[in-house]
Amino acid sequence: MGRWSRQLLTLPPTIYLLIFFAIPTVIMLFASFRFPGDYGGLAPWYSIEDGSYAFDLTWENWQRLFESTIYLELFVKSLGYAVITTAICLLLGYPLALMVSRSEKKRRDLLLLLIILPFWSNFLVRIYAWMIIFSPTGALTMAVNSLLDLFGIAPVSLMYSPTAVIVCMVYVHLPFMVLPLYANLEKHDPALLDAASDLGASGWQRFWRVTWPLSLPGVYAGSILVFIPVLGMFAIPDLLGGTNAIMIGNVIKQQFIESRDWPFGSVLSIMLTIATIALVWLGTRSGHRVKHG
């Protein structure tokens, strides 16, 4: 195929993604400097009544972000949720990935399949499962409360709590942590561990001095894959957190759907975009530094 016809083939997907991904992102950036419409949404760029165009911009929406500390606190809180979720995923996922990478070759594929399979059930179904578990009449809550009752402790309810939100976010994102970790751990040369024990290293020393430093690229990759979707999450806090666990995604949703203040919703979305890009950049940079010393 000629050079030109090859280049021509790239046009359809490029144009599609420019129209439906790149341009909407740029429009959102502009929208963050525009005025809300009379009935919510965005003020029109073109007025049908007098045929005039209006391109005036304002700083108001961005000023509102910094006027009070509410929104900055919200970002910090969302980052906090993402940090805790990522940390628990790492704590649960690392031993799992290590176990899979150290088991017999034949069994590895089956074990990996078992880790990925729950991920393929519908996202909302997985949230719903935890709604059943945490519901006040659910078996778990009943069992926990009857146990607490024995010790004379008042019954607890986990539904609509930050704990419920974090448990579910860990549940949904765990495979994202395990797979990159496994891909890394699988490549380690077992001879390195043998050499370490020949040199007198104990079990813990071998882990902290050999396995852990070598697995850092996998740790970074897995952490990024968990951290980013969690940071922008709205469905899980919406269904399991109620008003007690609000994240930035909930406020973005609220601005676009309920309050219909799109310019301010755009401000928050642009902030989330910037945070995401910064995280990807940081993650790939640290991953790179580890790889190349």
């Binding site: 993604l17 992102t25 959102m28």
Partner: peptide, 23 residues
Amino acid sequence: LVLAPVAMPDILLGVSLLILFIM
């Protein structure tokens, strides 16, 4: 262009497309 929509939190794709479709 191919990878960014996969890597970004999906709420961002949702709201930016909402603005585009209404516009």
